Amino acid sequence: WVPTKREEKYGVAFYNYDARGADELSLQIGDTVHILETYEGWYRGYTLRKKSKKGIFPASYIHLKE
């Protein structure tokens, strides 16, 4: 896992994603996520609506905010 280059990196989910394991994070369309790390097509972070739950999710489900 590699920390993100920018201190504040955010994105928005444009697909729903159902977590398949305890380390994964479920997403709903429109969720804003804070991205902490990246690795081979995956991000690690949390949604702003539930900051206490961190997990991994596919990068392809996220539109990055500039």
Rank of each mutant, 00 (worst) to 15 (best):
P58W: 05
E8L: 09
V2S: 09
L48Y: 09
Y46V: 05
Y17C: 06
G11E: 03
T47D: 05
V33S: 00
K5F: 09
F57D: 01
T32Q: 12
T4C: 15
V33F: 02
Y17W: 08
W1A: 08
L25T: 00
G21P: 02
G30P: 00
G45Y: 08
R6H: 12
I35C: 04
A59N: 03
H34T: 07
K53Y: 07
D18W: 10
K51M: 09
F57S: 00
Y39Q: 10
W1T: 09
E37V: 05
K50W: 11
Y15I: 15
R6F: 11
G55H: 04
R6T: 11
T38D: 05
V2E: 09
L36I: 10
K5D: 14
A19K: 04
L25P: 00
R6W: 10
I56V: 09
Y39F: 13
Y43K: 00
Y17I: 02
Y43Q: 00
A19V: 01
I29A: 10
R49Y: 13
E37F: 08
P58K: 03
G21K: 10
I29L: 06
Q28A: 09
I62L: 02
Y39S: 13
I29R: 10
Y61H: 15
I62C: 07
L64Y: 03
E7F: 13
R20A: 08
S52Q: 10
E8A: 12
A19S: 06
T32L: 15
E40T: 06
E7T: 13
L27R: 00
S26L: 01
I35D: 00
W1L: 08
A22V: 11
G21Q: 09
K65R: 13
E7M: 11
K5Q: 10
V33W: 02
Y39L: 11
E8Q: 12
L48W: 07
G45E: 03
Y15S: 14
V33Q: 00
R6L: 11
F57H: 03
L25R: 01
L36Y: 06
P58T: 03
R44L: 13
G41K: 06
L27V: 02
Q28H: 11
W42K: 00
S60M: 14
T32V: 15
Y46I: 04
T32D: 06
W1G: 08
Y46P: 01
T4W: 12
Y43T: 00
Q28N: 10
G55Q: 03
R44H: 06
A19Y: 01
W1C: 10
V33T: 01
F14L: 15
R20Q: 12
I56S: 04
E37K: 02
R20L: 08
L27P: 00
T38E: 14
S60E: 12
K51F: 08
S60A: 14
D18Y: 12
E40L: 12
T38N: 04
V12Q: 04
Q28V: 13
I35L: 14
D23I: 05
S52N: 13
G21S: 14
E40I: 07
H63M: 14
K5G: 14
V33D: 00
D18C: 13
D18S: 12
A22D: 13
L36Q: 07
R44K: 09
H34N: 03
Y61C: 15
K65T: 14
T47Y: 04
A13P: 02
E40V: 07
V2K: 12
T38Y: 13
Y15C: 15
E8M: 12
T4V: 14
K54W: 11
F14G: 07
R20G: 06
R44F: 15
G21T: 14
K65N: 11
Y46D: 00
S52E: 13
E7A: 11
H34G: 07
V12D: 01
W42G: 00
I62G: 02
K5S: 14
P58S: 03
K50L: 13
G30F: 04
Y46G: 02
T47K: 15
N16R: 12
L27Y: 01
I56A: 08
D23R: 06
W42D: 00
K53I: 11
Y10E: 06
F57P: 02
V12I: 12
Y61R: 05
G45A: 01
P3R: 04
A22L: 10
A22T: 11
Y10T: 06
E40S: 09
L25Y: 01
E24C: 07
H63N: 09
I56L: 12
G11C: 09
G41W: 05
I56M: 10
E7R: 11
S60F: 07
L36R: 01
G21D: 09
I29F: 05
D31C: 07
G11T: 03
E40K: 12
R20S: 07
Y46C: 11
E7S: 14
A22S: 11
W1Q: 07
Y39H: 09
Y43A: 05
E66Y: 13
G45P: 01
Q28T: 11
K53A: 08
L64D: 02
Y15M: 15
Y39G: 07
Y61G: 06
P3M: 02
R44E: 04
I62M: 00
K54N: 07
Y10S: 04
I56N: 05
G45Q: 04
K50I: 10
P58G: 03
R44W: 15
K5A: 12
I35M: 12
Y46K: 03
V12P: 01
K9V: 10
N16S: 11
K9Y: 09
R44M: 12
E24L: 05
I35E: 01
N16T: 08
T4Y: 08
F14K: 15
W1P: 07
W1H: 07
G11R: 02
R44V: 07
V12Y: 08
E8Y: 12
G45K: 00
E8C: 14
A22G: 10
W1Y: 07
G55I: 02
L27F: 05
D23F: 08
L25A: 01
G45H: 03
K51E: 09
T38Q: 13
E24T: 03
R49F: 12
E66A: 14
D23Q: 09
A19M: 02
T4G: 09
D23N: 11
T38R: 14
N16E: 08
G30E: 01
L64S: 02
R6Y: 10
P58F: 08
V33R: 01
P3A: 06
I29G: 01
S60G: 08
G21H: 12
D31E: 08
G30K: 01
N16C: 12
Y10C: 14
F57E: 00
F57V: 02
K53S: 07
E66I: 13
Y46W: 06
A13C: 12
K5Y: 09
Y10I: 11
T32E: 14
Y15T: 13
L64N: 03
V33P: 00
Q28L: 11
F14N: 08
D31W: 06
L48R: 05
K53L: 11
P58M: 05
I29P: 05
H34I: 15
E8W: 11
Y46R: 04
E66Q: 13
S52G: 11
Y17K: 00
V33Y: 02
P58R: 04
Y17D: 00
K54T: 14
G21I: 05
S60V: 10
V12F: 07
K53M: 10
T32S: 07
N16K: 12
R49A: 12
